[in-house]
Amino acid sequence: MNTPLADSQEKMAHALLNHSNEGLGEIFAHDEAELQARIAVYRNNVFFSLSNAISDLYPVINQLVGEEFFLALAKRYIRENPPASAAMVFFGAEFPEFVSQDKACLSLPYLADVARFELAKQHCYHAQDAKPLSLQIMHELGAEKLMASVLKLHPSLRLVDSKTASRSIWQAHQIEKPNFSEIDVATAEQSILVRPEFDLLICRADAALLLLITEIEKGAILAEAIDMTLEKYPGFDLASAMAMGFSNGFFTDIHSPQE
């Protein structure tokens, strides 16, 4: 049984999210027309602030579908996935899955992938800071020790494995007038996002590099992770993969497996 206060909060929360003013007349001292106008101020605040948060997090999706469509999409999302926390940095994480299921978005199969890319960017941006290892460590250790070691990934590192050209579409929208006539949206793209210091780096990767990083993330010894990768992708270019990893700050620590 609700207390009177809990009862009024339950009714108001329902009224705000569901656009119905049911039960509010007994709580507030206004006639119907005035109540409507006054509750609208709070309802606008709720939807305006939350759809702004979604739009800040997914600016390229907003550009791709246009303001009006985006706002309607954001409102549907908010109603189905209202935030559970006051920390807006965690809000909107289910949006890519929501987009992939939303009927109005079905004709744009790359939309959910671009949303996943933007979410990975957000997570990368807000992740724990850590000092990356430099390429120098490869020289210091030598190949034999390096291969027998376990590498620790940078806490900001995120893998984006898309069936569509999510990175190219995203990049095309970083300028004023995007032109993606040259992009084949149906090309699968793999990306690695990492923030070694304050600037976020976007690395073009391939399925082999993604597999290697995934194995490293699981804690595999480097030699085993490489074997696994070469087995599936015999053409894998290890030297350039390691150079890319160390020069972009993918790793923060290296140790022998027993440590």
Binding site: T3, P4, L5, Q9, A13, P82, A84
Partner: peptide, 25 residues
């Protein structure tokens, strides 16, 4: 003010009645 009810955070500062119950809470 209040902002959440039943695990849902509404991201606005919502009003409460000035009663003894509210004061205690």
């Amino acid at each position: 003010a209040w902002s959440h009810w039943n695990q849902v955070f509404l991201n606005d500062l919502l009003p409460m009645p000035y009663t003894r119950e509210s004061l205690n809470l």
